[in-house]
Design a protein around this nucleic acid. Structure first.
Length: 389
DNA sequence: TCTCTGACATTAGACGGG
DNA sequence: CCCCGTCC
DNA sequence: ACCTAATGTCAGAG
């Protein structure tokens, strides 16, 4: 569920923490991605007709592979270096939330049966989407695919978003690409939304800067975490009647959840029972993650063409020429990337730190503010000037 | 009147030929 | 460039 | 057996 109403709150109360970015700005950058969210979306939408999905000859679902493969190709082609992080064990506090989701799936299942019975195609599609579940198998197949593509895969001990945030804190990636605002609560220095949105029509990528969030809201990091808990997170129930706006003003006035609780009119506002906000706080502040030297080295290598053919074509019935063409695209992009690396000028190598020679991903020095919007779209990549203001 | 919350519903990819 | 059928 | 989330709409309380 993320943090309820946080995006809107930041837009209203901390507009300076978000900045639109052009797609090209991510050339050469390392980006962490939460894999499970992508897999879920692919299963819901890729190749779906009614309750049918893409499948191999033997009837196994392949929608997640189709989606993951081509999206990753797009990222690599754009010069990005993605690292995919897979979900580990959910924290105990999330159990309740997960149980709710599971129940909703079951309801959808009965609705689905009814719709099939009635021959209502529209409802069959609607409810079958809601029954989607990411299995261990889906995850394992995606890991195998990514490794064959030469893209690093990381297994999180627990929450993937927390692990992504840690990668960014440790300077191993520039930012994390996600739609989930939880990542900011976990303290990622940089969060990127809409990164993979298609060039036309959709909004530009939007970067959220953690430091600026705190600055604009005039909160400490601890207070920001408390704010997020009050807004509504996966770990505790909400106080009915307190949404994002009131939560912010309460935290500002009283400094912490303890302060807020002490001052709240208990007749007007019911505190949920139990309300393990301290535990939730700990999960955000010190989540179960691998950090620093413990993180395996992230390596981006050339795709294993024949391995991909064996997997996708021989096992999963993909069209061989499509796969070969896509691998070509990757190789072409890699050539360009190693040739024209800006990074060799501005890049990571410069930063000397105490972290045992680990490389740091550093933001490219700020270019002119927003001066030349006519910066020669070389290949007409961005067709229309999005009707920006 | 206006702001805010909460419940409920909806949406969610990418390619390539025409 | 957009639309829409297809990907497996 | 097991892990996704945001956004939009609207009624009604304060």
């Amino acid at each position: 569920m993320g943090i309820q109403g946080l995006t809107k709150l930041l837009g209203d109360a901390a507009p300076g923490c978000m900045k639109e970015q052009k797609f090209e700005n991510y050339f050469g950058r390392k980006i962490a991605v939460d894999a499970s969210m992508h897999i879920y979306a692919f299963l819901v939408v890729v190749g779906r007709q009614g309750d049918q999905m893409l499948t191999s000859e033997t009837g196994e679902v392949t929608s997640h592979l189709q989606g993951m493969f081509f999206r990753t190709v797009r990222m690599l082609e754009a010069g990005m270096k993605p690292v995919f992080v897979f979900e580990g064990k959910a924290p105990e506090l999330k159990r309740e939330e997960l149980a709710k989701r599971s129940n909703r799936r079951e309801d959808a299942n009965t609705e689905l049966e009814a719709a099939k019975e009635a021959g209502n195609a529209e409802d069959v599609e609607k409810y079958s989407k809601r029954t989607v579940r990411v299995t261990r198998e889906h995850n394992e197949e995606c890991k195998r695919l990514l490794r064959l593509m030469g893209v690093p895969v990381l297994e999180a001990p627990s929450e993937a978003e927390a692990q992504c945030a840690q990668l960014c804190k440790d300077g191993l990636v520039y930012g994390i690409s996600t739609e989930d605002m939880d990542s900011l609560t976990f303290g990622t220095p940089k969060l990127i939304r809409h990164l993979m949105a298609p060039s036309s029509q959709k909004p530009l990528a939007m970067e959220f800067d953690h430091e600026l969030v705190l600055k604009e809201l005039e909160l400490t990091e601890d207070q920001f975490i408390d704010l997020c808990i009050l807004c509504g997170c996966d770990y505790t129930a909400k106080i009915s009647g307190i949404g994002a706006v009131r939560a912010l003003s309460l935290i500002k006035k009283h400094g912490s959840i303890e302060g807020v609780l002490a001052a709240l009119d208990s007749k007007k506002y019911q505190i949920p029972e139990p309300f393990p906000y301290q535990e939730a706080r700990r999960l955000f502040k010190e989540p179960d993650v691998v950090k620093g030297d413990q993180i395996p080295q992230l390596k981006w290598t050339s795709p294993d063409t024949e391995g991909l053919i064996d997997f996708l074509v021989k096992e999963k019935t993909f069209a061989e020429d499509r796969i070969r063409k896509a691998v070509e695209r990757i190789n072409a992009a890699k050539g360009k990337a190693s040739q024209g690396r800006l990074e060799s000028f501005f890049g990571p190598a410069k930063v000397v730190s105490s972290t045992m020679g680990k490389r740091k991903e550093v933001p490219v020095a700020a270019k002119g503010k927003k001066g030349s919007s006519g910066a020669a779209p070389k290949k007409g990549k961005l067709g229309g000037m999005g009707k920006k203001k």
